[in-house]
Design a protein around this nucleic acid. Structure first.
Lengths: 267, 267
DNA sequence: CGGGACATTGATTAAGATCAATTTAAGTGG
DNA sequence: CCACTTAAATTGATCTTAATCAATGTCCCG
């Protein structure tokens, strides 16, 4: 029986030594940690490092780290659920997730697949309650950012406020583009667009943009792109036949990036 | 013949004396002004009135008004264009608009149809350049809110900051719902969902939720909902045949709101 | 009154949904 | 470690919805 430890993180002991060092063996399938990369490149939306960039450098980095504690989420578990009160935002440090909504009649929609660096929880800001479920696609680690702390920080620091605003605007712009994808593209173009997005984000975090592993199921992809899972599967097959992709289950290899771009960027 | 005034319901002369009065004859087709309604009900996302709600009440309303000057936009004209530098946000005071993106290959997507009270320009926050065209569907009036003034205000006032955040989150949540509509609903359900949204917003501003005039063309609706304009037309016809709607070109009458809701809320 | 934008309607086609059957991989427990 | 169970993915056959192509109708504005 697959009993999951509901008292989260497996991890013990290693926290005692250096705060930011992790033994990745504990989660062998987990992506390597890239906190510095994310923070130093300024790619993260809002992180403890980013938050301090423009603030008084006398503030101890360590204390800032302590202010945003880590939390592990195991594969399949939810970081938060629709209806929960918004208390924290979360920065995804390692791993990946899906953000999904379910209507009162049970229709599901996967809105996005956040990866390391992403800021989660913004969907709760409108009403004070989350409107989505945030579910880990693999064992993942987040930083917990108390929302009202963040607001206070924004109040003290225009830079942080602008950064938060940009993070929110980025999500909105991403959705607006996704609307276009769903409204005007056929299944091949949707899949191409989807893969380009993932490819780009992989590159952003220093991984191969050509070869990677999809962390989500065909059903998740279908639910994200407004298709049926059979159509997703068939589309992968067709793109493989066209020598644009090599697909082996979740493992993906982009053979013809130009052709993929031509498809995914719109007609 | 059942001719309905295509302008929004008139607001009785309360604007004649004070500084917010306009001679609507200049723009004969323009909706009556509803500044007080929008502001006082707290329905606007961010307005000069809202911005002062929690701040020092000694601040003159007049000076605040002066800080956010009016601007008229004629039907078909754009308030801003994709690529323009973000300088201002705009609060739509009267009238309505469409927000649309066009890709490099010319694919168009109408992301939303803002109505009075809406805050426009948020799409420019991510990069500092607008990513959409904001086009007036009728002669409309906006309040011009310099973005960096607003940021400064947010800095001074947590309430304003939260309000701006909520406005952005609201837009994002709206898009997320629209994704679900496009991903999982058939044409009847999409149209139903679309009409429910408009109906609700009409009610919010004190107009009839049952009977109203669509300010946009069939092509705009189609482009918004990921359909072809012929399909939009046919769907209206079918909903009329089912005694759910009365449709006469742009004029719309909801005969069976429950049936419409059943369709639009998902299966 | 006439021209153009907008809308409706009809006939046909094509893309993707649906229903259904296998195949493959990954655990689980004996 | 291997048989067994289950989740995920692929593939095939058929059907349905909406796209497409085309023609006509209607209203508004100059």
């Amino acid at each position: 029986m697959n009993t999951i430890d509901t008292t989260y993180p497996p991890v013990e002991g290693h926290q005692s030594s250096n705060q930011d060092s992790f033994s990745t063996e504990i989660f062998p399938n987990t992506a390597p940690l890239i906190p510095c990369k994310v923070a130093s490149m300024g790619l993260c939306s809002v992180s403890e490092a980013c938050l301090n960039i423009k603030s008084n450098s006398n503030i101890k980095y360590a204390s800032s780290t302590a202010a945003f504690p880590r939390r592990w989420v195991r594969q399949g578990e939810s970081l938060y659920r629709a209806g929960d009160a918004l208390i924290n935002l979360y920065q995804l440090y390692t791993g990946s997730a899906k953000l999904r909504t379910i209507t009162c009649v049970g229709t599901e929609q996967v809105a996005e697949f956040p990866m390391a660096g992403a800021l989660l929880g913004l969907d709760g800001i409108e009403t004070g309650k989350y409107t989505c479920d945030a579910i880990a696609l693999e064992d993942s680690m987040v930083r917990t950012i108390p929302f009202f702390d963040l607001l206070a920080r924004c109040n003290a620091d225009t830079e942080t406020a602008l950064r938060l605003n940009k993070a929110m605007a980025q999500e909105t712009n991403h959705y607006r583009h996704l609307l276009l994808v769903l409204a005007s593209m056929n299944s091949e173009e949707r899949i191409a667009s989807f893969l380009l997005d993932i490819s780009e984000r992989m590159a952003t975090y220093g991984y191969s943009s050509r070869e990677f592993v999809l962390k989500m199921t065909r059903a998740d992809i279908a639910c994200h792109l407004g298709m049926k899972l059979e159509t997703v599967s068939r589309t992968f097959t067709r793109l493989q036949a066209a020598h644009i992709l090599d697909v082996d289950r979740r493992h993906l290899n982009i053979r013809d990036h130009d052709a993929l771009r031509k498809l995914g960027m719109g007609r």
